[in-house]
Computed example of a mutant assay.
Amino acid sequence: MEIDLPGRAGKTKACLTAGHNQPEHKKSDTPYPAERLPDDVSGHMEEKRAFLEIQLSPMLYIKPTYGTKLIYVHPNGYQKFPVQNGAWVQLYLPVELRGSLVGTNLTASHRPLYVLPVETIDESLQEPFIKHGVIVESGLLGHTPDHIETNGPNEGRYEMPPEGEGVVWQTWVPLTEAAQFIEMQVWYSPEILASSEGDRGYRFQLELDKEGVSDEKSTRLTSLDPGTLQIETLGGREKSIAILVPN
């Protein structure tokens, strides 16, 4: 089941796969960690950790890009049609993450025939996500460049954001025409946020929309949210690649 999210532009859904290959999707019905934890010392400690996890939540913005493809249309002959060829990915990290390492994993997924369970298209988009990424100031979240930039690695291309502000990791990744979702998993250093049982970090699944789409609280899946996404099949924190957030 796909649930429409109020107040969202485009076709954004909150999609949380319930089971490894199950088509059912849902968002959490319980907004407060305390309502899902035991009323004892361990539960109170996890409650504090869960609220800190919410306070330090990253944000994700995705905007697909398009090329053109010649398609024969009878009787007019070949015509140009827009074809999805990639997406801008912007990951906002709050100021508390300045000077730390942030583990990330990224992949694309789709729902075959629009009715079958969601499955991964590309095993991982980590290489272009890291190789071509740059740090930009937080005010650019939701504002992507007009042209695709993949001319080389990001060495020497950092812009030092103002002190006391969060930062945005911005990059472009290639996608196939079939890609419908971008899925992402993010882990913070244990010194900043202790890992919970399962160490699932923050998880995102955003449906691609030509106007661009931002996540909201209802699409940020924390460690207490049940279920799995396809991104979780890529190996977890041990297989993630770190972003060095400038101090």
Rank of each mutant, 00 (worst) to 15 (best):
M1P: 13
E2I: 05
G7M: 11
A9M: 07
K13Q: 08
L16S: 10
H25L: 14
T30H: 08
A34T: 03
A34W: 01
E35K: 12
E35W: 03
S42R: 14
S42M: 14
S42K: 13
G43C: 12
G43Y: 08
M45N: 14
E46A: 14
K48S: 12
F51A: 05
L52H: 04
E53Y: 00
I54H: 04
Q55N: 14
L56N: 07
S57R: 15
P58C: 06
Y61M: 07
T65R: 08
T65D: 08
G67N: 07
G67F: 00
K69A: 07
Y72Q: 11
Y72R: 14
V73P: 08
G77Y: 01
Y78T: 04
Q79H: 07
F81A: 13
N85S: 13
W88S: 05
L91C: 05
L93V: 01
L97Y: 00
S100H: 07
L101S: 11
S109Q: 04
P112I: 01
Y114L: 15
L116P: 03
E119I: 15
S124Y: 00
Q126C: 11
F129E: 08
I130W: 11
G133L: 04
V136C: 11
E137V: 00
E137R: 09
E137P: 09
G139I: 00
L141V: 01
G142N: 09
I148F: 03
P153Q: 11
G156S: 08
P162L: 08
E163R: 08
G164E: 02
E165G: 08
L175F: 06
E177Y: 06
A179I: 10
F181S: 02
I182Y: 02
V186P: 11
V186G: 08
W187V: 10
S189G: 02
E191F: 07
A194Q: 12
S195M: 09
S195W: 09
E197H: 10
R203T: 06
R203C: 13
F204N: 10
F204D: 10
E207W: 03
L208C: 08
T219Y: 05
L221P: 07
E232Y: 00
G236C: 08
G236K: 06
R237G: 00
K239Y: 01
K239D: 07
I241Q: 13
I243D: 03
V245K: 02
P246Q: 02
